Simulated scan of single mutants.
Amino acid sequence: MTKKMVTAASYGMVTAFALIIAVAIVLATLFKFTSLDEFSIGELPMLIISFCALFIGGIIAGAKMREKGLFIGASTGFSYSLLIYLILFLGYDRPLGWDQYLTILVNIIVTGMGGIIGVNLSGASKKR
């Protein structure tokens, strides 16, 4: 990977993490000041929030790279998933199961689609 690819993937990952942290702060505030708790929300909305953040991160990575949107998006999604699951495996002693493998695959697909859209939004095709 070239320096430009690493930079673009890093921008996408930082964007995804920033969005997830922002949503986590909002949810923590809701949990603190309302009767809402983690168990009443469930796992599906958290996955949807994660996929939305990754999609936006893919758009940012693709716009930064301005070419090879699918590749840079998929690389961003894979790097994000690798980091998250390394933390889960090493920090929380939680082995990977089929549901995690499926989540990693969907992360890569969603971020790759975001990368494709990001390249097209960046105006790379207008330069030709």
Rank of each mutant, 00 (worst) to 15 (best):
I104K: 03
P45F: 08
V119K: 00
E43V: 14
P95M: 06
L105A: 15
L54C: 06
Y101N: 11
V23R: 05
S122G: 13
I21Q: 05
E38V: 12
F78T: 11
S40Q: 14
Y92T: 12
T7P: 01
Y92P: 03
A18R: 09
T111Y: 00
S125N: 10
E43N: 13
L47I: 12
G115Q: 03
K127R: 14
K32Y: 10
V6Y: 09
V26G: 10
L105M: 11
I117G: 00
L36R: 06
I104D: 03
M1H: 08
F39G: 12
L27A: 13
V23W: 10
A28K: 12
G91Y: 08
I104R: 02
M113E: 04
T7L: 12
L90Y: 12
I117W: 03
T103R: 09
G118E: 02
D99K: 13
L96K: 06
I117H: 00
R94M: 14
G123V: 10
R66K: 15
N107D: 15
I87D: 07
G115A: 06
M1S: 11
L83K: 06
F17V: 14
I84S: 11
A24G: 12
S35H: 12
L102E: 08
I104G: 03
G69H: 04
S79R: 04
V14R: 04
G69M: 06
I49T: 12
A18N: 08
I104Q: 03
L54R: 01
R128S: 07
A18G: 14
S40L: 10
S75F: 11
S79N: 06
L36P: 05
G118K: 00
V119D: 02
Y80K: 04
R128A: 07
G57I: 01
I84G: 07
I108F: 02
K3F: 10
F33R: 09
